[in-house]
């Protein structure tokens, strides 16, 4: 098991995949902050006064962590943030499912008050969490611009 987790090729593939997902997910949120703020509002989890700040900072954190992961710069910090963000997304989606808020997730585009696909997004995030956990526990240090501080 340890050998699989530490496999250099597997870790590289997951780095590229997860990094690309986060970069892609950040795109609409950065160019459409109003829509993303609305998406956050739909979840009713963030105090109104903080919604815009979260809508501005979170997409850039996704983008910068995605780039850091792919290029291997501040790598461990990026992996930590990706695990934290994925868990936060899962908590938000879980509350939406439990409270019966009918929205799509707002992960890659603006959330709408419409048919619910929060459960689909939650399942997707479980898969994403497995990948980010692999990166967290992998000891592979290959193909990185910056040496990992362990």
């Amino acid at each position: 098991m340890r050998r699989i987790i530490d496999n250099d090729i597997l870790t590289l593939i997951i780095r590229l995949l997860v990094g690309s997902i986060f970069i892609y997910a950040s795109y609409y949120k950065i160019i459409e902050p109003v829509s993303f703020a609305k998406s956050i509002w739909y979840y009713h989890l963030v105090p109104g006064s903080l919604i815009n700040l979260v809508a501005l900072i979170l997409p850039w954190l996704e983008l910068i962590c995605g780039l850091a992961l792919i290029f291997g710069i501040q790598y461990r910090g990026a992996v930590l943030w990706m695990n934290v963000m994925t868990i936060i997304f899962m908590i938000a989606l879980t509350t939406a499912v439990v409270r019966g808020i009918s929205i799509d997730c707002g992960c890659f585009k603006a959330a709408q008050a419409t048919e619910s696909s929060a459960m689909d997004a939650l399942i997707r995030d479980v898969g994403l969490l497995i990948l980010t956990l692999q990166l967290l526990f992998s000891r592979s240090k290959k193909w990185m611009i910056q040496k990992i501080a362990t």
């Binding site: 501005l56 900072i57 954190l61 983008l63 501040q74 461990r76 930590l80 943030w81 501080a149």
Partner: peptide, 21 residues
């Protein structure tokens, strides 16, 4: 790891608040 995470957060803060201006 925490120090790196903090650096990434600061960089994101600078970009997000600056670009929004």
């Amino acid at each position: 790891m925490l120090k790196q995470a903090f650096i990434l957060l600061i960089v994101s803060l600078i970009f997000s608040l600056g670009v929004n201006l």
